[in-house]
Design a protein around this nucleic acid. Structure first.
Length: 825
RNA sequence: GGGCGAGUGGCGGAAUUGGUAUACGCGCACGACUCAAAAUCGUGUUCCUUAACGGAUUGAGGGUUCAAUUCCCUCCUUGCCCACCA
């Protein structure tokens, strides 16, 4: 008997599949399409570990299953290779990013191939290939021409370690998402994409997506739409006014002071001479505070009085104006009306600086005369009846809200306003390793788009690509690159030297897979129409408000331009659960706790065992600790399958034992119910139980074999063949090998998925639970479909039941056919 | 502080519509094979208690029901995301 040796069979089939091209997608097929995609990886210096492998295993099982179900499947792979990690790796290892990327993609590709993933490698793309980023630049120009790409000087997040600016989405708790260092604010002229123009559509279209609710709510939260009003407060003794944003205009009678952010443009104007020194000091100290410090002060309120007063437009009350850094310049108008009786932040501030905290405006218990005071627990979300609010008293707060805004509108002191937390996407980076922004700066014509036929603007190969930290990309030091002529007037001009954020590439790469070699446009409309949108997109949740939001934005822009006919790129999104190290910690190179597939394969487990382990360890979308012992179990299952098939093949040539009889009904029922179970489980993405069902099948067949020694060859042939097919999406190599050993010349991975016949599912006998008062007391075996009277008399004749019922009266009998009978006494 | 999710044997987990809780795997124990070990095969394995019987059990407590891991309420623990967003 041949031994199961993954080291021999796995590379053999990988090469055969590749040379036969059996996973390549055809553009002209009559079959229905299915586009299954995993996030294209970042080929960093650290190799892939079993956590990454899980992501690709899920996608691969789905792709293989879909093929066997008769779909024309697109399952491509490529490299998201621009960006900081690749560049930092190159700097550290003193090689050029280009060489680093070549080394890393070679390694990653080898890792993917040795896992037997069924990618169409003829469609491989690399975002750093000029043939690819030419079109990334083309999309930049599309956005530029549509007025969705613009330059603006403002305070931006700056990472002093990576020496570049960062988008808001790329700053987590005041730290750089890549290196974890504290970020600073720096005033720089930067390029932005106007994603805010699409905020409403990005929000509304979330509803219809088959995405995890967690991701949808993260995006909703990030877009942060809130409706309210902008209200104008005139300043006493000044010719100016301050606008505030509030979601609760109904609480305007509770305003006891105004607060403006320290960065507010009117702050210096309205500050009186007597208070100027203290205000100036306060502005300076809050500027010196990094944002992380501003967040870490455990919300202790600070602030100073400006000396000025404002007039409440609803009742002409005079209220003081303060400045405090709990009000953020970047949101709303950078100024608020403080309502201490209904906002805990305002309450805390009033408490600390001795400002008035009354009156209560919304009665929480709907009594106008003596409401329970909410002063100790102010809340912005409370609704109720209006009190202390003049003519609005007695109205429901939601009604008063509308009335007050329209009344203010009449006196031109207020209007409805929708506010968003989302900011425009800062796209420029002061780093070398990215797609150059295809813009030329001309003294006469300003920022001018490079002509389309001049694309790509090639990233020059340079000696010194380390960031300078001066706020300019290293490309600024390359005169040959910088100096050019203006596409409009032909006069001398300078190229933009910033490069694009790596997320620009990933905002459209999924479209390129439909038409990866097109040199005349980013993709053919017909091919995009055929393959897109992505049916199943598989990846971790870490891209929730970055890539997944950006890609949706670009897709909508392309839709508006008429390039594509769909508005959402990813119909279904699947977030796989993280694989943690056996100790429960995140796997990372720095902790030295990573487990790499290469080592496991070297130990003789094989890719198939790893694939089984990745899925069997638990639900695919939940985190799991990697288990070293569990690998042995996965391997044993495959080996038992191997041995069983070998023994069956040998039984073909040895005469079967004539004295033994195969129970064909039991065999057929076992096989057909397993087909049903595995099929249903794959459809519902319950991969762990799909594998468990196959283990049960193999265990069951072992028991059959012990009884009948493969007596009925025909039924055994069917059982074995089916078992091998069911295993194919999960463990493709061993399945392919066994398939060929069984005498097939085709590929099991191109075979048809087995179907079950419901007629075989019905068992000869079913076990009925016999309960008394809902407690299990006995079990009886009856024919399926037995009626109540039959089951009841059988159950009542059971010794246990007789004893427990005694001469008590049975009040009620509950009968569930083929399941249980319950006597209530 | 806000949002979303999760708590089941020694461990990872299963239970698809309220209907026999603990499938499958790991680990462990015993047996077979072996000079021996590994590997493999087989049997057992929720806990307490017993000669047998029996009792308890899905984070805790309560509720609905003939029947609750499943539905409802309160609380505890824990994971992830967002966080002074007015």
């Amino acid at each position: 008997m041949k031994r199961y040796n993954p080291k021999v069979i796995e590379p053999k089939w990988q090469q055969t599949w590749e040379s036969e091209g059996i996973y390549n997608s055809t553009d002209d097929s009559t079959k229905p399409k299915k586009y299954i995609l995993e996030y294209f990886p970042y080929p960093s210096g650290a190799a892939m570990h079993v956590g990454h492998v899980r992501n690709y295993t899920i996608g691969d099982v789905m792709a293989r299953y879909a093929r066997m179900q008769g779909y024309n499947v697109l399952h491509p792979m490529g490299w998201d290779a621009f960006g900081l990690p690749a560049e930092n790796y190159a700097i550290k290892n003193k090689i050029s990013p280009k060489i680093a990327i070549e080394q890393n993609t070679t390694r990653f590709k080898h890792q993917l191939q040795q896992m037997g993933f069924s990618y169409d490698w003829t469609r491989e793309i690399n975002s750093t290939d000029p043939r690819f980023y030419r079109w990334t630049q083309w999309f930049f120009l599309l956005l530029f021409k549509k007025g969705l790409a613009y330059q603006k000087e403002s305070l931006q997040w700056w990472c002093p370690f990576d020496k570049t600016v960062l988008a808001n989405e790329q700053v987590e708790n005041g730290r750089c998402w890549r290196c974890g260092n504290t970020v600073e604010k720096k005033a720089l002229k930067q390029w932005f994409f106007k994603i805010t123009d699409y905020a409403d559509r990005l929000l509304e279209d979330l509803d219809d997506l088959d995405w995890p609710e967690a991701i949808k709510s993260m995006q909703r939260n990030w877009i942060g739409r809130s409706t309210g009003a902008e209200i104008k407060f005139a300043i006493v003794d000044h010719d100016t006014s301050i606008n505030v944003f509030t979601t609760r205009p109904d609480t305007i009678f509770g305003v006891t002071f105004l607060v403006v952010a320290p960065e507010h443009p009117l702050l210096k104007t309205i500050t009186t001479k007597a208070h100027a020194v203290r205000v100036d000091e306060y502005i300076k100290t809050s500027q010196a505070k990094s944002d992380i410090e501003r967040q870490e002060t455990t919300r202790k309120k600070t602030g100073v009085f400006t000396g000025s007063y404002a007039i409440n437009p609803i009742n002409n009350e005079i209220i003081p104006i303060w400045t405090a850094d709990y009000v953020l310049m970047g949101y709303g108008t950078g100024a608020i009306m403080a309502v201490p009786s209904h906002d805990d932040r305002d309450y805390e501030f009033a408490e600390k600086f001795g400002l008035p905290k009354r009156p209560v405006i919304v009665s929480p218990d709907d009594t106008i005369e003596n409401p329970t005071s909410p002063q100790n627990t102010p809340t912005l979300s409370s609704e109720g009846l209006m009190i202390n609010s003049g003519k609005y008293n007695g109205l429901a707060s939601a009604v008063a809200r509308d009335n007050i805004v329209s009344d203010l509108e009449k006196q031109k002191a207020g209007k409805l306003r929708v506010n968003y937390k989302i900011r425009d996407w800062l796209i420029s980076r002061q780093r070398y390793w990215g797609a150059p922004i295809p813009i030329v700066h001309c003294e006469k014509d300003g920022a001018v788009a490079v002509n389309e036929d001049q694309l790509p603007v090639l990233l020059p190969e340079i000696e010194n690509y380390e960031p300078s930290g001066e706020g300019r990309s290293p490309l600024a030091k390359v005169p040959d690159f910088v100096n050019t002529s203006c596409p409009l007037c032909g006069g001398p001009a300078q190229r933009e030297t910033d490069t694009m954020d790596g997320f620009a590439c990933s905002s459209w790469y999924f479209l390129r897979f439909a038409d990866p070699h097109n040199d005349s446009k980013p993709f053919d409309e017909r091919l995009a129409e055929q393959w897109l949108p992505v049916d199943d997109y598989i990846g971790g949740a870490e891209h929730a408000v970055m890539h997944l939001l950006y890609a949706r934005f670009w897709t909508k822009v392309m839709f508006d331009e008429g390039l594509i006919k769909f508005e959402e790129p990813f119909s279904a999104l699947r977030n796989q659960g993280m694989i943690l190290a056996p100790d429960g910690q995140k796997m990372s190179k720095s902790k030295g706790n990573t487990i790499e597939p290469d080592n496991l394969i070297g130990q003789g487990y094989g890719a198939d065992s790893i694939r089984i382990m990745e899925l069997f360890i638990g639900p695919w979308n939940q985190a799991a600790n990697w288990s070293v012992d569990g690998m042995g179990g996965a391997f044993r299952f495959l080996q038992r399958t191997w041995v069983l098939v070998q023994e069956f093949i040998e039984s073909k040539t040895n005469k079967p034992d004539a004295g033994r009889i195969t129970d064909s009904q039991v065999m057929l029922r076992t096989v057909h119910s397993t087909i049903k179970k595995v099929t249903d489980d794959i459809e519902s993405l319950s991969f762990n139980t799909a594998i468990a069902a196959q283990m049960e099948l193999i265990n069951g067949l072992y028991k059959q074999k012990a009884k009948d020694r493969f007596s009925d060859q025909q039924i055994w042939e069917y059982a074995i063949t089916t078992a091998v097919k069911l295993l194919a999406p999960f463990a493709p190599h061993i399945s392919e090998e066994l398939w060929h050993m069984l005498g097939n010349n085709s590929f099991v991975n191109q075979s048809e998925w087995p179907k079950y016949d419901p007629a075989y599912l019905l068992p000869e006998k079913v076990t009925i639970a016999v309960q008394i008062n809902g407690k299990l007391r006995d079990v009886i075996e009856v024919k399926p479909g037995s009626v109540q009277s039959e089951v009841e008399s059988m159950a009542l004749s059971s010794d246990v039941v007789k004893k427990l019922v005694g001469d008590q009266k049975i009040k009620k009998t509950i009968f569930i056919p083929d399941k249980l009978i319950n006597f209530v006494i």
